[in-house]
Amino acid sequence: MTPAPLSQPTSNRLLAGHMPQLDSLRTLAVLLVVVYHWFPTGQGINRLPNGTIGVMVFFVISGFLITRILLGNRDRIRAGKATLGHTYRNFFIRRVLRIFPLYYLVITFVYVFLPQASDIRAQPAYYYLYGYNILLHKTGNWADLLSPFWTLGVEEQLYLIWPWVVLLMPPHRFRAVIIGMIGIGVLFRGYGYWNGDFDGVLTPASFDAFGLGALWAWYTTERPTAIPQFRHLLSGAAAVSLVLLIGLLTLLPGDHIAVVLCQRLLISIIALWFVVGASLGFSGPGGSLLNNGILQYIGRISYGIYVFHMLVPGYAVPLLLRILNRLGIHLSPGFWAHRLISLAVLLVLASASWYLFEKPINGLKRYFSYGDRKPSAQPG
């Protein structure tokens, strides 16, 4: 992939609005998560830590976009064009509108109809208060149907704290805070390692991924003239990280301290290289791939794919096959055919969720814009 040259003021370009190549990165990230959960671990296409890679890509993208939004609003507050309370209220409401409705719909469905597949009946508060990652840390029950939702708990917990850090921190100290955040992520996983925790599902264990995304947001808003130098350094760091990651994966067991400490960091640095390039716009063959309309569409519905993907192969597809059987269509798909059917069902379900449920609710964001207090037609 070839990063596009900076042919116009970078800060203006990055703050202009939607970055479609990031949607394609979301597609790749969510498909890696699906592969991790749908295929035998350590075999075939699931030999890599696909789940970790996909989640770290999501976290880096989230750290970049959320921090970018907050830094822009921090400047508006400092200029007297907005208040701290108004900004935080609208930020949180917009996150609620995007994340909460589908999340609560799915966990309530599991609570009512599939309680045997989850710990939700025994510990509902952890799920309904976005603390499931804390429960998973305690139980280690990765067989829970809702186990991927630990990442949503991490993000929501971060949304409670990070806006205040960004909006209140003196600008000249903010980069140091980001660097400290990255360090805390590594150190916290070290602390967990010494206490027998290799999963790293508590929020501080993912600080380095979020922090790296936030660092790119800081450069785009605060130091746009230093972006060429940053990209040069990042390219070298990503190349070294790739070599080290290959070494970790091939030479060391998954519970080795070097893997626990460094694997996520190395993946996040590589992910940041892709996020930086996609936010600016890759050119060449890689850019053509990321500009593909199908990939970008799947990225737009990636939240639904993530939320539904554990339900589809074990519950939705068997239900579909039973319905077809009653209609006289008898199918007995093998493993690969079953996965292809599951993928088709997942894409249809996520699309229906987006157009019939998520998008209409998401449209309410126009009443909570960061600009004027009156309703506006601003997207996002």
Rank of each mutant, 00 (worst) to 15 (best):
R98I: 13
M169Q: 03
M169I: 14
F188L: 03
P171Y: 11
P115Q: 01
G80H: 03
F113T: 09
F174P: 07
E156L: 00
Y128K: 14
T87C: 04
Y103F: 02
Q157N: 10
W194I: 13
I184A: 10
I178Q: 05
P170R: 04
Y191T: 14
D144V: 04
R89D: 11
V96I: 15
Y132T: 00
H86W: 13
N90M: 09
V166F: 09
Q123P: 11
F92D: 09
I178Y: 01
H86T: 11
L84D: 09
G192A: 01
D144H: 02
G185A: 01
Y130H: 05
I182L: 07
L84S: 02
L168P: 14
L135N: 04
L135M: 07
I134L: 00
Y104E: 06
I107D: 02
Y111K: 06
I179M: 15
T108A: 04
T139Q: 06
F198N: 13
Y159R: 07
G183I: 01
V186D: 08
G140W: 11
M181Y: 11
H86E: 10
M181H: 13
D199N: 12
Q157V: 00
D144C: 01
Y104G: 03
I134C: 09
L168M: 10
W142K: 12
S118A: 04
H172I: 13
N141E: 08
D144L: 06
N133Q: 03
L102A: 01
L135I: 11
I161Y: 15
V106F: 00
G192Q: 08
I134R: 05
T108F: 03
